[in-house]
Design a binder for these strands. Structure first.
Lengths: 140, 140
DNA sequence: ATTTTAATTTAGAATGCTTCTAATCCATTG
DNA sequence: CAATGGATTAGAAGCATTCTAAATTAAAAT
C-alpha cells in the first residue's frame, strides 16, 4: 500500500523527467494530484486548494506556472469553456465536453457522442489547430 | 443618402424599443454600429474604440452594460472562444466559428460546414442550452 | 561532500478584462 | 415643465492570470 504509493511517485517523477522538466517537490506534488487516479478537470484555484489541503508546499504562482508548462509539453490540455477561467484536462486525447454552466464544471462527453462531418477547409494562410465542441448545460 | 441614414436610425430605435429598452443616445449609437450593415463580431474594447472614433458619447462601462443587455434580450450572442475576453456576434442564428488564435479574431464558418450527429443526451437533471463549435486556426 | 550553476519557486506587484458603486444625468410621464 | 425612475458615468474594486526580482533548490562539477 505504502509500496504502491512509492511506485506511483516514481512513475510521476519519471513522467516529469520524460518531458524535460526537473522533478521538483512542487511539480511532483501537483502531478500526483493530477495524474494518479482517474482523469480529471481542474482549475488553477481548485488545484491550489487541493495541494494546500494535502500538504503539498506550493504557491498559487507555481500552480499557474506548472499548469502552463504541463500544457506546453502535452501532459495536460487546456479546455476553453468560457471567458471566466481556464480548465485543465488530464485526458489529452481528442474528445469533447459538457459544461455545466450553473456549477462551472466540465464533464467528458460519453464516448461515441458527436461526430463532425463536413469539416471546413481552413481559410487561406491558416491551418486548423483543433476543433473544440462544448455542449453547454443548465439545470432542467 | 442622409435619408437612408435617418430611416436606419429609426429602425434601430424601434429595435431597441421592441425588446423593452429605452432608446438612449448611447444605446442608439452602439446599436447603429452593431446592426447597420453586415453581421459582425466585436469585443467590448473594439466597440468602445469605434464609438469614440465615430463620435458616439459613451463610456466603457456603458459599452459593457449595453452588450450584456443586448445579449440578455437576444439582440446579440456571446461567443466563447477563449478565456481572455468575450466576443459578441450580431448574428444570433445558430452557427459556428473559426477563431484565429494569432489575431484574436472570429470568423463565421462557411455555411453548410459541420453537422453534428449523435448529439448526446444531457445528464440527469440537466438540459442542453446550446452546442458551441470553435475551429481554432493558426498561421500556416 | 562541498561548491557551483542554473533552473525553480515565491510573495507581492502588476495587468487586463469586467463588474460594481454611488453620484449625476436624462428620457418619459403626468 | 416638473417629477420620477431608469441610464450613464468615473473611478474603484474584483478576479484570474502573469510578471518581477529575490530567495531557494536540484543537479552538475569539483
Amino acid at each position: 500500500m505504502g509500496n504502491k504509493m512509492v511506485i506511483a511517485d516514481k512513475n510521476v517523477e519519471l513522467k516529469i523527467r520524460a518531458v524535460g522538466l526537473k522533478p521538483t517537490r512542487q511539480r511532483i506534488g501537483l502531478a500526483r494530484l493530477l495524474f494518479i487516479g482517474c482523469a480529471r478537470h481542474v482549475t488553477a484555484d481548485e488545484l491550489f486548494a487541493e495541494a494546500s489541503e494535502s500538504g503539498v508546499p506550493v504557491s498559487l504562482a507555481t500552480v499557474y506556472n506548472t499548469l502552463r508548462q504541463f500544457v506546453d509539453v502535452g501532459l495536460l490540455r487546456e479546455v476553453l469553456a468560457g471567458p471566466e477561467r481556464s480548465y485543465f484536462d488530464t485526458d489529452v486525447s481528442h474528445h469533447h465536453h459538457f459544461f455545466h454552466v450553473d456549477e462551472n464544471r466540465l464533464e467528458d462527453l460519453p464516448p461515441g457522442s458527436i461526430s463532425i462531418d463536413d469539416l471546413p477547409n481552413a481559410p487561406a494562410g491558416s491551418k486548423i489547430e483543433r476543433v473544440d465542441v462544448v455542449v453547454r448545460l443548465t439545470r432542467k
